[in-house]
């Protein structure tokens, strides 16, 4: 990650931490609403790679605040939601790893049990897939100047893939946490409940699958490969 983006992420963490206490105002005051506005127009001139990085942090720290709406317009909300989901899933994984390495049962950490290891490996694969989808979508959006229509294939594929990961990720995160993860006090629900909500927001599985499926059917079998390779690398 570039130094500029690292700085942006550090700022986002600090601002979101404050916003978690007092609401969305600090996010607006810090100028995140201007992230995508060109520098010539008084904005930050950020790209979707920046938005992706910032929203992943928002998905961890302030999943209940409308940060995505503040940064991006309506047509980009499905893409923004993918970034939030990637962040929240990363956090669910981090909490799960931390918990199984700490919590002891039968005289050893839960993470030493093969059944738990295999579950978390499955979960990690889903999380990595969604992170990759969010990053690839960002690359596409930046290549087409944030034109959502020109990134329709990638938005559909990434949101659908993220939606489809929600069940596995939330289920395994809660399963390995046991009862503590089901309490109001513990942090896990702060990311798993938003994940459940985001799955249905800005297009659920059926919506994007039907849309992408019709688009691909129109391309034909060989056309799918030709289109996919023409759109990236």
């Amino acid at each position: 990650m570039s130094a500029a983006r690292n700085m942006l992420c550090d700022t986002a963490r600090a601002v979101f931490a404050e916003a978690a206490m007092v609401g969305i105002a600090p996010v607006g005051e810090a100028g995140f609403g201007l992230l995508l506005v060109p520098e010539a127009e008084g904005g930050f001139g950020g790209d979707w790679g920046d938005v992706n990085a910032v929203l992943q942090i928002a998905g961890v720290v302030v999943p209940d605040l409308p940060v995505a709406e503040l940064i991006a317009g309506e047509t980009l909300q499905p893409a923004a939601t993918v970034s939030l989901m990637a962040g929240a899933m990363g956090q669910a994984l981090a909490l799960s790893i931390d918990h199984v390495n700490t919590r002891q049962q039968f005289g050893r950490p839960l993470g030493k049990f093969q059944a738990v290891q295999q579950s978390l490996a499955v979960m990690a694969c889903e999380v990595r897939a969604v992170e990759a989808a969010a990053a690839a979508l960002a690359a596409r959006l930046d290549a087409v100047g944030l034109d959502a229509a020109a990134a329709d294939f990638e938005i559909a594929a990434a949101k659908l893939r993220a939606n489809r990961a929600v069940g596995v990720v939330t289920a395994i995160a809660h399963q390995v946490h046991g009862a503590i993860g089901f309490t109001e006090e513990y942090d896990l629900h702060r990311v798993t409940v938003p994940l459940m909500r985001w799955r249905g927001a800005h297009g659920n599985d059926a919506f994007w699958a039907a849309r992408l499926g019709r688009q691909v059917a129109a391309l034909g079998g060989r056309g799918l490969w030709e289109t996919m390779t023409a759109r990236g690398a």
């Binding site: 990434a158 659908l160 059926a206 699958a209 039907a210 691909v216 059917a217």
Partner: peptide, 9 residues
């Protein structure tokens, strides 16, 4: 269409 969409994603 749904199946094709999911496999494509």
């Amino acid at each position: 269409a749904t199946l094709i969409g999911e496999l494509t994603a």
